[in-house]
C-alpha cells in the first residue's frame, strides 16, 4: 500500500483528490475519474504527466498542429502557473468552472477573461473583431469585412452601457443576462457522468463517495 501511494504522489503535478474535491465542484471519485482522463490526454505525445498544448489541441481537434485562438486562450487560462503546461491540479480546478454545479457567476467571469485577449480588464472593439475573424477562419462562414464590422459595431453598441467603446466586466454580466446562450458552452453536462465514463478509477480509489 505504501509503495502504491508513493508512486502516485511522485507523479508530476499530481495532487491529492481529497484536497482537489474540497476546493472544487467535484467529488473525490470524480477527481479520481478525471485523473484517468488526464493520464490519457497527457500521454498522447510527450508522456511526462503534464498536459502540453499540442496534446490539448490533439484532443480538441484530432490534430496537434491546428492553430486556434480560442483553444490557445483556454489553454492559457488553465495554465494558471504560466509555465507552458497544464498540471493535474490546474486541470481539475479549471474544469470545475464547467461543472453543472458551479456558479453562473464563475462561468461568466471565466468567459470574460477568455475574451479579454489582452488581459486589460476590458473586451476592446479590436479584440472582438479579432475573435470574429478567427471564428470565420476556422469555419465555412464567409462574411465580408463590412458585415463583420457591422456585427462587431452592433454588439459593442448593445453591450457598452457607459459608452466608453469597450466592454467591462459589469457590462459583460448584463449582456450575458440578456443573452444566456453565450455561456452555454461553459457548462459540460458530461462532467456529472465522469465516473461512469472512466470507471477504471475504482482500481486506484481511496474513498467511496
Amino acid at each position: 500500500c505504501f509503495c502504491f501511494k508513493s508512486s502516485r504522489v511522485d507523479r508530476l503535478g499530481y495532487e491529492d483528490p481529497k484536497i482537489l474535491a474540497s476546493e472544487t465542484a467535484f467529488t473525490v471519485n470524480e477527481v479520481e475519474a478525471l485523473y484517468e482522463l488526464f493520464k490519457k490526454l497527457c500521454s498522447s505525445i510527450i508522456k511526462d504527466g503534464l498536459l502540453h498544448k499540442e496534446e490539448f489541441q490533439l484532443a480538441l481537434f484530432q490534430s496537434s498542429s491546428k492553430q486556434n485562438l480560442f483553444a490557445d486562450r483556454v489553454f492559457d487560462l488553465f495554465d494558471v502557473k504560466r509555465n507552458g503546461v497544464i498540471e493535474f491540479g490546474e486541470f481539475v480546478r479549471s474544469l470545475s468552472i464547467f461543472h453543472p454545479r458551479s456558479s453562473e457567476a464563475d462561468k461568466i467571469s471565466f468567459a470574460f477573461r477568455l475574451y479579454d485577449l489582452g488581459q486589460t480588464g476590458y473586451i476592446e472593439r479590436y479584440e472582438l473583431k479579432q475573435m470574429v475573424s478567427a471564428l470565420l477562419n476556422e469555419s465555412d462562414l464567409d462574411l465580408s469585412d463590412d458585415v463583420v464590422e457591422s456585427i462587431v459595431e452592433k454588439t459593442i453598441t448593445e453591450a457598452d452601457l457607459n459608452g466608453d467603446g469597450r466592454i467591462d466586466q459589469e457590462e459583460w454580466k448584463e449582456f450575458v443576462a440578456k443573452h444566456p446562450s453565450l455561456i452555454k458552452n461553459m457548462t459540460l453536462p458530461y462532467l456529472t457522468d465522469i465516473t461512469v465514463q472512466f470507471p477504471s478509477f475504482v482500481l486506484n480509489t481511496e474513498v467511496q463517495d
Binding site: 477568455l114 470574429v132 471564428l135 469555419s139 462574411l143
Partner: peptide, 25 residues
C-alpha cells in the same frame, strides 16, 4: 443566420471552446 447573431454568439461556435471534445479519448 450568422448576420443576425451578435459577435459573441458567433464566437461561441468555435471548436476551440467546445471542451466536450476533450472527453472523446
Amino acid at each position: 443566420q450568422p448576420v443576425a447573431m451578435n459577435a459573441f454568439e458567433l464566437i461561441s461556435m468555435s471548436k476551440g471552446l467546445n471542451l466536450g471534445n476533450l472527453f472523446d479519448v
